[in-house]
């Protein structure tokens, strides 16, 4: 099969899934996505970058199977929609159950699969430790800071050991210091597991710092305008943020974003 529909050079890794000319029109007539084609490679860290209304969150929800496309196909290369189970989602808000402790929140996906508490406990505690919250298992969400809540949310996503992690602007509501720290920790988790991540953001810097490939999207209707590989080696230290190559890429993306936006928005 040719990759003609994909806007990128063929991804170096074997594709995990492909969106083939996927469109989504909502019942109110809004066209969120227009014939979006995109391949996500195994083990890639792909950022979907764009202004609000460019359909990046819609694309993520389509991949998750939370909504169905109006036209087009989503093709999975692993054992089909068993991928449904190996997939986790992190929202912009931590989306925790306020009546449950951090432990019970993280255990929820396992519990829904019928796993018993004693059986699930080691995995839950391990996930909490991995996100840097080994001592907060008994805390209720209201007792945690915004950053800690997001960590619990990430632990809940990791506890099922997903092959694909979908993140919808997870750090957008956090302060910059917390966001930088979570960026670092997320990269560490990404590298320590055989995981593919699709990360939605509107921050150019965040997208370059985290990803191996940045897909730039434009609104009205949502579409891909360009995809740029980030040839920076992992691990990526904090010092990278002042690196010349990093900043060149950021400028490049910023320009791509502007040319994509300009003709429609300023006429």
């Amino acid at each position: 099969m040719t990759d003609a529909a994909a806007p990128t050079k063929a991804a170096p890794a074997p594709p995990l899934l492909r969106l083939e000319r996927v469109s989504k029109t909502f019942p109110n007539g809004t066209m969120a996505l227009d014939a979006l084609s995109l391949a996500i490679g195994q083990g890639e860290f792909v950022s979907l970058l764009g202004p609000s209304g460019c359909g990046k969150s819609t694309a993520l929800r389509l991949i998750a199977g939370l909504i169905a496309p109006t036209a087009g196909d989503i093709v999975w290369n692993d054992a089909g929609r068993a991928g449904h189970r190996a997939l986790s989602f992190v929202f912009q808000e931590s989306t925790l159950m306020p009546w449950a402790t951090a432990f019970d929140n993280v255990m929820m996906p396992l519990k829904l699969r019928g796993m018993r508490r004693t059986e699930a406990a080691p995995r839950v505690l391990e996930a909490l430790a991995q996100v840097g919250l080994p001592d907060s298992a008994g805390a209720y969400p209201r007792e945690l800071s915004g950053g800690m809540k997001m960590r619990v949310s990430i632990a809940r996503a990791l506890v099922t050991e997903p092959t694909l992690l979908l993140m919808d602007e997870p750090f957008a509501a956090l302060d910059e210091i917390t966001r930088f720290r979570l960026n670092q920790d997320l990269l560490q988790l990404y590298r320590s597991r055989a995981m593919t991540i699709v990360f939605v953001t509107h921050s150019i810097y965040e997208s370059v710092f985290l990803s191996s490939r940045v897909v730039v999207m434009a609104p009205r209707p949502g579409r891909v305008v360009s995809a740029i590989d980030v040839p920076l080696a992992y691990p990526r230290p904090e010092a990278l943020r002042s690196d010349a190559a990093y900043n060149r890429l950021c400028n490049h993306l910023s320009e791509a974003l502007h040319t994509a936006m300009a003709p429609r928005d300023f006429l």
């Binding site: 998750a64 939370l66 986790s88 989602f89 929202f91 829904l112």
Partner: peptide, 10 residues
């Protein structure tokens, strides 16, 4: 979003 998450986890 919690409802969506529950759906996602089957």
């Amino acid at each position: 979003n919690l409802l969506a998450l529950f759906t996602l986890y089957g």
